[in-house]
Structure formats: structure tokens, C-alpha cells
């Protein structure tokens, strides 16, 4: 059986909020290492990969592999019943029909309990190769969100060019064009504001801004985001979560025929 207790319901609320625009139904794969999720969007252009390691929970107990097939709209409805600061416990039997969620207030004696009916989801799993990326950029997640939002006002697509000069996000649209260039930067007062660019060879790729702006819904989960790029392969956008856990998004590029 599964029993997983999170100190703050807020973490799961934010994770689900940030993927619900991309994915409708998905399996939460539980085993002794934690709770993992991998799902593609309907058009098979973007992929979400989440890992909540067992260390992020206290306690965490799961003695065998359990797949919880959950409709994210249903999960969102139930998670709205939790206060952000509530303690959240997920429970399921070994071959479950439902997942049980318990919300406890640390301050009062309130205890809420909900069951969500599970679905049989035949999910296509993709093998993601270990990649040595040619460029990786770590920057404030709010900055990446702002750039994405600003350029989306002008265009559907963004070109991301990374050279030793810096990283340039640029777009061309009907009303004109725009670009934002970032250079490596160390902020002495606040390292959350740092921009670090790690480059082994120049990269230039084009991506859909609609998907990138969807990924940026995860900005509330982490003050930092890491973009990893290599020519002609999918972009990796990664938000670090507590206890070495992560929320990753992959986006296939636009490539000339």
C-alpha cells in the first residue's frame, strides 16, 4: 500500500496547477523511490516528467509498484479543498479503485478526507536519452516567464540562440520583431538573480511560445529555472523541487525541412 505525507499541500497543488494545461489524465507511478509521472500533451510536442522523491515526504511508505491513474481536473477539484499550509497524506491500497487524500490543519483539529476514483490509463512511455547538452542556462524563473509572455504578444515562435556572448531570445511577428539578450551575471546581494550560461558549442533553435508559456506556470515552484539545449533536439526546462525532486518539461523544436 501507499502512504505518503507531505508537510504542505501547496507543493502538490502547484505541481498539478502547472501541468494541467498540458495533460488531462495521467498515471502517478508510486514505488519505494517516490512518486513519478511522465505524460505527453495530446499533440505529442511537449512532455512533462515529474519526480517527487520519497525524501520529500515524511513518512513515505510504498512497498510495491502502484500506478494511480488520475484525471487532473478531478484532482484539482479535490486539492482546492486543501489549505496551502495543510498537511496532505495520500493513501492507496495495492490494487486500488480510489486514492484517498487527507488534509490536516496543523493549527486546528480539522481533518478533511476525500477519495478520487481512479482510471485505467494506458499511457505511452517514452525513453528519454541521457543527453550532454551543448548549452545550459540557469536563470530566475520569473525572468524566463516575463520574456516568454512578452514575446508571445508578438509571435508564435521564439528563436533561442546561445553563444559565448550570451543567450538571445528573439521573435518576428506581424507587427514587428523583438529580442531579449541575457549575459552571465552574478548578483552579489541575491544569488537567485544570477544568470549562468554553460556553453560547450553555440546553439540556435526555434520553439513554440505557447508551450513555453504553459511551462512557466511552474514558476511559483522554484525561483530558478534551468534551460538545456542542443541543436536539433528537444529543449529541457527544469524546475528543482525540494529533496532533489524535480518538474521537467521537454519541448520538441521547430526544424527546417
Amino acid at each position: 500500500m501507499l502512504e505518503a505525507r507531505l508537510e504542505q499541500a501547496n507543493l502538490l497543488k502547484k505541481v498539478v496547477d502547472s501541468i494541467t494545461n498540458l495533460v488531462q489524465d495521467c498515471n502517478f507511478d508510486c514505488n519505494d523511490s517516490g512518486i513519478a509521472l511522465q505524460a505527453m500533451d495530446n499533440s505529442h510536442v511537449a512532455l512533462v516528467a515529474m519526480m517527487l522523491r520519497s525524501d520529500a515526504f515524511s513518512p513515505f511508505r510504498c512497498d510495491r509498484n502502484i500506478a494511480l491513474g488520475i484525471n487532473l481536473t478531478s484532482l484539482t477539484k479535490v486539492l482546492r479543498c486543501a489549505q496551502n499550509e495543510d498537511i496532505l497524506t495520500l493513501k492507496a491500497e495495492d490494487a486500488p479503485d480510489v486514492v484517498n487524500l487527507v488534509f490536516e490543519s496543523a493549527e486546528s483539529d480539522r481533518l478533511s478526507e476525500y477519495d478520487i476514483k481512479l482510471m485505467d490509463i494506458d499511457q505511452e512511455h517514452l525513453g528519454i536519452p541521457d543527453t550532454e547538452y551543448a548549452a545550459s542556462i540557469t536563470m530566475p524563473s520569473a525572468e524566463f516567464q516575463r520574456i516568454t509572455r512578452d514575446l508571445l504578444a508578438l509571435s508564435e515562435s521564439v528563436s533561442i540562440e546561445c553563444t559565448k556572448e550570451g543567450v538571445k531570445f528573439s521573435c518576428q511577428g506581424d507587427i514587428g520583431s523583438g529580442s531579449v539578450t541575457l549575459r552571465s551575471h552574478t548578483n552579489v546581494d541575491n544569488e537567485d538573480r544570477n544568470v549562468s550560461i554553460d556553453l560547450s558549442e553555440p546553439v540556435s533553435l526555434m520553439f513554440s511560445l505557447k508551450y513555453l508559456s504553459n511551462f512557466c506556470k511552474a514558476s511559483g515552484l522554484s525561483s530558478r529555472v534551468k534551460l538545456s539545449l542542443s541543436n536539433e533536439v528537444p529543449l529541457l526546462v527544469e524546475y528543482a523541487l525540494p529533496s532533489n525532486s524535480f518538474l521537467r518539461f521537454y519541448l520538441a523544436p521547430k526544424i527546417g525541412d
Binding site: M40, S43, H44, V45, A46, L47, H125, L126, G127, I128, P129, S157, M206, S208, V233, P234, Y250, A252, P253, K254, I255, G256, D257
Partner: peptide
């Protein structure tokens, strides 16, 4: 003209 690729082209079966 650049065309949106699908992930299956890059990521195979596990």
C-alpha cells in the same frame, strides 16, 4: 519554413 517536430522523433521506447 520551420516545422513543429513531434517528440517521438527524438525519444524512443524505453
Amino acid at each position: 519554413v520551420k516545422t513543429q517536430q513531434m517528440l517521438g522523433k527524438f525519444f524512443g521506447a524505453p
